[in-house]
Design a protein around this nucleic acid. Structure first.
Lengths: 335, 335
DNA sequence: ATGAAAGCGCTAACAT
DNA sequence: ATGTTAGCGCTTTCAT
């Protein structure tokens, strides 16, 4: 491994000077600079960033914590984070907790000890231990959709209410009067919030002859499949269903279709997330969108801000959701 | 930052002893060990892995290079890699080249200088520069689907032939006589290979009255959509189409359906990749599967082997593909 | 305009 | 059974 001493020897200067020409951190006469650069060239010098980090206390590395790489929610978030990270000369450590606290703790603990400059926690998990570990480390961090409103930290919140409101009002404008909601897993905060947003909004219309009901799902395809069975039992069936996520909506849609129930003619369906799949199913799914790429990008922006100036006040960003109208919704036929 | 000296001072021992109790690297009497451990506890000591790595030359960190995080091919690969990596006490740096050589070079160059212990290249890109950079670094690496048969390196190859053969023979057994193939982008090696595998196999049946044709696609949905138009022009239309990937197959299927062509009654369709989507579309897609999770797991196994014993012979693993029969294929009606 | 030397936190050969 | 010391490759203060 060639190092400053090797270069210094050949260039006949001190290793201090080598450091200074490499980092442009003080004036070096053109001649000596030239000698140094030539020596570097000749030896094909590659800096050891580990040593530099140990000396400077800065690693140009950040950690990104997610809970399930297979969840279609994440790829665009990762892309947003990674793209700006690389542009800003950072590498990213990916930690997939897999909903496993032990595993998360292990790999994130290692990141902390590897002195990452910051961490983005987008695992939407109430892993208190993990959180404690990070806070104690004094490493800058950003929370994405953490939903603990009282936490004083750089955070990104999702406002599902805006999109859900649009969805409900859109359905009402199409004449729907019986609107169901399929929820996510009941211990998942983001699912609870989505459900409560729905309830709060639709309650305002209850005296307008609008009725609703919540069916429990699990944010997976089979949650939608099971919900379909319950919905078919209803008499009359709801003419519209909003789902806590797209996978649920797709499971629901496929099952109803398989049982001869036309979508959207008989039942209008709205999803949430706007995963790639939602465009591709037939009919294409009307859904509520979160701008995931932008969320990732914003997360790293907040983190870099924090890294570069530790004492600015904590920042918060809200992401509105919005309705994307496709073909799984139409005028209610029950008028 | 508390370090060995702080601990040593409190425990009244030398920092060497501290190191040895932490690493269990030589005998320390129970009493002094106890003193050291108590001091560590008291100071809430956390090791600085950067310093340790600088001293040992080992970082317990590996790099994973992919080309497009949004490609549904990758999440399971990443999962396979990450899972075993964490279990083996490694963290992973994720590099998404985004098909951008500059970007890839930049972030991978940084990884090398950050002294990763190894790199998995699953970017299926002929980025010669990138490759050169890695080889020169002498860091162990594993190639996934690199398709440069002459390279002497730990590698994982995909054998598309086995699955494509199954697919072709399955279609023939169903009575299909006119079988088309929609290819991927013509500059992508894996796409070329898939296409050539198809051609080689079907040629064997040409004198059995089986005819074929290649239509160019691009491994994206719209490639399938465009191919649908060409296929509809044919007279008679092929009764079966094999696609170079699932997205193409889905684009094709959706378009044909939209134009009133029943799948599989009129045209049988087979995809390749078995992405999650392929189960969910309707009808569920018959497809050729690659075991991606296992591939990821195998990649890191090879890498860890290499890291742990630099001088074993280069290893190679072949992954067979196999046909998964779902509902997008049926008996040919042209008999 | 350049160098000497200490230090970042840890490891490990060499002593005793 | 434990300590002294040099060293990993780099940065940076203090001198000159």
């Amino acid at each position: 491994m060639v190092n400053y001493n090797d270069i210094a020897k050949i260039a006949q200067v001190s290793s201090t000077t080598v450091s200074h020409v490499i980092n442009k951190t003080r004036f070096v006469s053109p001649e000596t600079k030239k000698k140094v650069l030539e020596a570097m060239q000749k030896l094909n010098y590659k800096p050891n960033l580990l040593a530099r980090s140990l000396a400077t206390g800065v690693t140009h590395t950040i950690g990104l914590v997610i809970s399930d790489i297979k969840n279609p929610f994440y790829p665009e978030i990762i892309q947003g984070v990674e793209e700006l990270a690389v542009k800003s000369d950072y590498n990213i450590f990916l930690c997939n907790t897999d909903y496993d606290i032990e595993k998360g703790l292990k790999s994130i603990g290692a990141l902390i000890r590897k002195k990452v400059d910051g961490i983005i926690i987008a695992s939407s998990q109430a892993d208190k231990f993990l959180f404690k570990e990070i806070v104690e480390s004094t490493i800058p961090f950003v929370l994405v959709d953490w939903n603990e409103n009282k936490i004083n930290a750089d955070s990104i919140y999702f406002n599902f209410e805006s999109g859900i409101k649009e969805a409900v009002e859109y359905l009402i404008s199409l004449g729907h009067k019986k609107i169901y909601f399929i929820s996510g897993p009941k211990d998942l905060k983001t699912a609870k919030i989505r459900k409560n947003n729905f309830i709060n909004i639709i309650k305002k219309y209850e005296n307008n002859n609008i009725s609703y009901k919540i069916i429990e799902g699990n944010h997976k395809i089979d949650g939608g499949i099971n919900a379909a069975k319950e919905i078919e039992k209803e008499n009359p069936m709801p003419t519209a269903v909003i789902c806590s996520n797209d996978l649920t909506a797709i499971g629901l849609m496929k099952t109803l279709q398989a049982n001869g129930i036309k979508i959207p003619d008989k039942v209008s369906i709205i999803g949430l997330d706007n995963i790639m799949l939602s465009e591709i199913v037939s009919p294409p799914l009307t859904t509520i969108e979160l701008e995931r790429y932008l969320i990732g990008k914003t997360a790293i922006e907040l983190l870099l801000n924090r890294i570069n100036s530790k004492d600015i006040p904590k920042q918060t960003r809200y992401f509105q959701t919005k309705l994307i109208i496709r073909e799984s919704t139409t005028i209610a036929k029950n008028l």
